[in-house]
Design a protein around this nucleic acid. Structure first.
Lengths: 144, 144
DNA sequence: TTTCATGCAAAAGTTTTGCAACCCC
DNA sequence: GGGGTTGCAAAACTTTTGCATGAAA
């Protein structure tokens, strides 16, 4: 996920979503949007602190909740802590259980959409978001 | 998930998997296998403590890791902590993001199998297990 | 008898909370 | 100016670790 917003566009996007804009919030959003992988809260915290040495984890958590509620980012419960995703299109996370690397794949077969539809039909629940992970061994971590 | 093993069968199953059998491990396994829902570690701990008041969380975590490594149970990273699943067949978790209830659905359309296959083909990773969750609002929690 | 699990305790890590000062709108 | 946000601090909660004792094979 490369940066999808210029600074200005990001500010506009936040305002559009009814989020009060602060420098810290911009920094948090930029950290997530500019990352190639799904960052943990600590990783986000570390990056933002380079620009705002006085920011606290509490503020980061606060901001993550606001951004999540607005739909700009999505929390992914992972072993080892919550990570944040910015890809709004449904996709698959493939996780190596040994080295921890995560690869994203688009929902090419429409399987994720199919699962959401299945859930709606069978439970009457109203699907909002989804997460799918395959836990696997990457080639380097596979027993040769 | 109702209990799938008699006490004796469970002991045999643990031995078959190369797990050293202790009374505490049986209790932990029975708690998980006998539960209808996916229990958190604290819920497991609370249940087992009724039989073994001196057991510690450390032992529960230890046991969960052993049972996971053997493939008898599967950890599910959920918002709010890890839960444990005993259903070895791939299935879908539908979670109400407000009240937290979880419903399981079988992989009727073969979507989960399709995702694992997609992951294998596209990444070369060797799929071991999987998790799919739909975050949704249940009828009672839906804004009428 | 040897090896490994348990219990106890402490520590590391994650997430939440309360509140006064401050900043965005 | 008003109300929401920040920083600071403490606390609650989850998970990991070290070690002496005890139990399983």
């Amino acid at each position: 996920m490369t940066a999808r917003f210029s600074r200005d566009a990001l500010v506009r996007e936040l305002r559009r979503r009814g989020i009060r804009v602060t420098a810290q919030r911009i920094a948090v959003a930029e950290a997530i949007l500019g990352a190639a992988e799904h960052l943990t809260v600590q990783e986000i915290y570390r990056r933002v602190r380079q620009r705002f040495p006085h920011i606290t984890v509490g503020t980061v958590y606060n901001t993550l909740e606001v951004l999540t509620a607005s739909g700009l980012i999505q929390p992914l419960p992972f072993p080892g802590g919550t990570r944040y995703d910015t890809d709004p299109t449904p996709h698959l996370n493939v996780v190596c259980i040994r080295c921890g690397q995560v690869r994203d794949l688009p929902d090419d077969g429409g399987h994720l959409a199919g699962l959401a539809e299945l859930a709606r039909r069978r439970t009457g629940f109203q699907p909002l978001s989804q997460q799918a992970a395959i836990y696997a061994l990457c080639p380097s971590c596979s027993p040769s």
